[in-house]
Amino acid sequence: MNFFEAVETRRSVYALNKEVKVSDDRIKEIVEHAVKHVPSAFNSQSSRVVVLFKGEHEKLWDMTTEVLKAVMGDADFSGTQQKMDMFKGAYGTVLFFEDQAVVGGLQEAFPAYADNFPIWSEQTAGMHQFAVWTGLATEGIGASLQHYNPLVDERIANEWNVPESWKLRAQMPFGGIAQPAGDKEFKPLDERIKFFG
């Protein structure tokens, strides 16, 4: 599969199961390769990742369910429960963080760019998410990107001993593809791109 085929293969897949056809070691290789080689401003390498497999993954979504139930109170939880069950039914979850100690250090070292370092950190986070997501897709693993932060941040930090300076940016449940992503609509490229010269 070439690069453009890999980019096209990456989709938001929500219907996931535990039937992954590659080893945990292969999944670790994908994550490690992305974290090592994805670029960052000033080569800051501010992205941090935690990968949860099997029971640890299920624990995450049970915790998230508890937190959301507390937030929603007496409101109808059935739709949210379906999502939580769907994510829990996946094989694992990748948690993406940005280390604010790194960002703060760069702000101190380069005050002229201080306002930009948090923005550049978010760009780095997005690139890491895309690289891991695409890497998983090339192995036939489906995934989606979720954002239950900051509601779950404290519980996650306590459960998996996450350093205080790591700021949770996204959660990516992944697993076997129980149902592929549907058709995707594309806006006209001439409304989105300009070429000159």
Rank of each mutant, 00 (worst) to 15 (best):
A131N: 03
A112W: 14
Q107C: 05
W120I: 06
S121N: 05
V103G: 03
G105P: 07
N116M: 15
G104D: 03
I119H: 11
S121T: 03
D115Q: 15
L106E: 09
W133A: 08
L95M: 15
G104T: 00
L95Q: 04
Q100N: 12
A101Y: 12
P111I: 13
T134K: 10
F130T: 08
E122A: 12
H128F: 12
F117G: 05
G104E: 06
A101W: 09
G105I: 09
V103R: 00
T134A: 15
L95N: 10
S121C: 02
F117V: 00
M127S: 12
G104C: 10
A114T: 07
A114I: 10
L95Y: 05
Q129W: 09
V103F: 07
E108C: 13
G105H: 02
Q123I: 09
D115I: 14
E108V: 15
Q123H: 11
T134N: 13
A125C: 14
V132M: 02
I119R: 03
Q123P: 03
A112Y: 14
A112L: 15
Y113R: 07
M127E: 12
F130E: 06
F97C: 01
L106V: 10
P118M: 11
V102C: 03
D115K: 12
E98Q: 09
A109M: 15
P118T: 08
F97D: 00
G126E: 06
W120R: 04
A112I: 13
F110T: 13
F117Y: 05
Q123R: 09
F97Y: 02
F130I: 11
V102Y: 00
A101F: 11
S121P: 00
L106C: 08
P111E: 08
A109F: 14
H128W: 08
T134E: 13
L106H: 04
T134F: 14
Y113K: 11
V102T: 06
M127D: 08
Q100E: 12
G104W: 02
M127I: 09
A114F: 12
A112T: 14
H128D: 02
F110Q: 07
W120L: 10
W133M: 05
E122I: 05
V102H: 01
A125I: 11
W120N: 03
V103H: 01
A125E: 05
Q107S: 08
Y113V: 10
L106Y: 06
L106M: 12
W133Q: 06
H128G: 08
E98G: 04
T124I: 05
A114K: 09
V103N: 01
G105K: 01
T124C: 02
F97T: 03
D115C: 14
M127F: 13
Q107A: 02
A114R: 11
E98F: 09
D99N: 10
W133F: 09
A125D: 03
A109P: 07
F130S: 03
A114H: 11
A125P: 06
E122M: 13
P111A: 14
D99L: 07
A114V: 12
G104A: 10
A112F: 15
A131Q: 06
T124F: 02
V102M: 03
A125Y: 00
G105F: 06
Q123G: 11
H128V: 13
A109V: 12
D99E: 08
V103I: 13
D115P: 13
G126Y: 04
D99I: 01
Y113L: 13
P118I: 08
W120K: 07
E108Q: 15
F97M: 01
E122D: 15
T134G: 11
